[in-house]
Design a binder for these strands. Structure first.
Lengths: 232, 232
DNA sequence: AAACAAATACTACGTAAGTAGCATTGGATC
DNA sequence: GATCCAATGCTACTTACGTAGTATTTGTTT
C-alpha cells in the first residue's frame, strides 16, 4: 500500500484515467513504491517479467545493446506516467531490452499477474492500451524512418526539435543529457554527435555548455533538420 | 456481400478467430471483395481512412518515401490474413505511409466505421488487437535495432534467414523480389544489395538467378548474419 | 587550492555505403 | 527469332560515419 497522493498520478495515467475515483483508491493498495537510484539497471533488479511499473518521477530509458560492439541505443525515453513493460504484460515471453534510470526515479510497481487480472476485469484498461501501443508504433516507425533516410545532423536536429516545449520554447527532457546519451537516442556515437554539435554552434544554431543545450536560432535548426546529404 | 468461402479465412484471422461461426457469417455481409492489380498504390485508391482491409491473397507492402531523395523503405511486408491499417482504425488521423501491392491481391474491405463498431461490440476483437500490435512493436524494434547496429551484409543475411520456411527449408515470401525490393526491406539501395549478393555468391552461400535466391550453405549464411564490421 | 574524474573538444585516418554511369542478361511481346 | 525493357552485374568515385587517441575543460571532492 502506498500514499494516497498517488491518486492524482493514476488519474492522469493513460491506462487508469477512465476509471472511477473509488476504484483508483482500491488499485493503489496493490501498488508498491520503489525508489531506484540514478543509473539503476534492470539486470540487477527484479525483472519486468514479474512486475509492471508506472513512473511517478524521473526518467527511464529502454535500450538495446549489441553484445559484440557494446554499442547501445535507446528505443524509448520514458518519463512521468509512462509505463513498462507492455510487451511483457501481453505475452509471457521475454522482451529483449534493458532498462536504466537516468535520474533517481520513483516507480509504482504491481505484480504483473494482478495487472493482467485488471485488464480482464476492467475493459477500460484494455481499451486504453490500444492507443498507447499505437503511439509506440508511430514513434518506432518515425525512428526507423529517420535512421534509414536521414543523416546524423538531421536526426540530431530533429531530436532537439521534438523536445522543445511549445509553451516555454525551452528544451526539455533531454536538455541535461551527455553527448553519449544523445548519441544513443539517434543511433550514433558520442564523437560524431559532438562533431555535429560543434558545427551547430559554429552555425549559430545553439549554445552548449556542459550537459546543457540552448537553442539560439530556431529557424536555422529547422533548416538543419530538413537538410540531408542523401537528398540532392 | 461476398462468397462464403471466406469464412475459413476469417476463422484463421487474428482478429476474428475467437468469434462464433454464425457471427463470422454475419460479418461477411459487411465485407466487399476488392481485386487490386499488381503495383496498385493507395494514392490512386480509396484511402485507408475510410476502409479497413484484410488480405485474402497476395502481398502488400507498407512503406515510406523520402520526398527529396525519393528513397523508399518498407516497414511491413503484409501477406494473407494480415490487416491494415490498424493505426488509422484506432485514431482518426492519417498514417503517414503508403501501401502498394507486390502481386495481384485480393482484399476484403469493410468501412472503417463498421469495424470500429465491431470493436466496441465484440471485446474479443478488441482483445485480439493487443497481441497483434505487440508483434508489430517487436518487429519495429528489431528493425530499428538492426539498422543502427548491423551493417548491410548482416542485415541482408538476417532478412533471408527470417524468411526461410522451417519445414521446407526454402526461402519464402521474399524469394521472388527484385534487388530493389530487397534493398527497401533492409533500408539500403539496389546497387549495394547487389554488391553483397554477389559476394554471398562468391562465398558459396547462395545461388542467384533473376528474381530468385536459393540458399546453398545455411551455416555460412548464419555466420554472415553475425559478422559485423561495427564489432571488433 | 590541489587533485581528481568525467565530460567535452579536436585531429587524423580507414572504410562501408551511397551514387553515377554503363554493360550485360533474361524474359516477355510482337 | 527479332525487339524491347527491366533487372542485374560491374566499375569508379565520393563521403559521412565510426574509431582511436589525446588534449582540454569543468565541476566536484578532499
Amino acid at each position: 500500500m502506498i500514499g494516497k497522493n498517488y491518486i492524482s498520478l493514476l488519474r492522469e495515467n493513460i491506462l487508469f484515467k477512465d476509471l472511477e475515483e473509488e476504484k483508483l483508491a482500491g488499485f493503489l493498495t496493490a501498488f508498491q513504491e520503489e525508489i531506484w537510484p540514478k543509473n539503476t539497471c534492470n539486470i540487477t533488479k527484479t525483472p519486468t517479467l514479474f512486475k509492471f511499473y508506472i513512473i511517478a518521477e524521473g526518467r527511464v530509458k529502454i535500450y538495446r545493446v549489441d553484445p559484440e560492439s557494446a554499442r547501445e541505443f535507446t528505443l524509448f525515453l520514458l518519463k512521468k506516467n509512462d509505463i513498462f513493460d507492455v510487451l511483457c504484460l501481453l505475452e509471457n515471453c521475454e522482451h529483449k531490452v534493458f532498462y536504466e534510470t537516468l535520474d533517481e526515479a520513483t516507480l509504482l510497481s504491481v505484480p504483473i499477474k494482478i495487472m493482467r487480472e485488471w485488464i480482464v476485469k476492467y475493459p477500460q484498461i484494455n481499451k486504453s492500451l490500444l492507443p498507447y501501443m499505437g503511439k509506440q508504433i508511430r514513434i518506432l516507425e518515425e525512428y526507423t524512418s529517420n535512421v534509414v533516410l536521414s543523416d546524423i545532423s538531421s536526426r540530431l536536429a530533429k531530436l532537439i526539435l521534438t523536445n522543445i516545449n511549445k509553451k516555454s520554447k525551452k528544451l526539455e527532457l533531454i536538455n541535461d543529457l551527455s553527448n553519449d546519451e544523445l548519441a544513443n537516442l539517434i543511433g550514433s556515437t558520442r564523437a560524431v554527435v559532438n562533431r555535429h554539435l560543434q558545427q551547430f554552434k559554429k552555425d549559430g544554431i545553439l549554445k552548449i555548455s556542459r550537459k546543457k543545450v540552448e537553442i539560439t536560432n530556431l529557424e536555422l535548426l529547422l533548416k538543419q533538420a530538413e537538410k540531408n546529404h542523401f537528398s540532392g
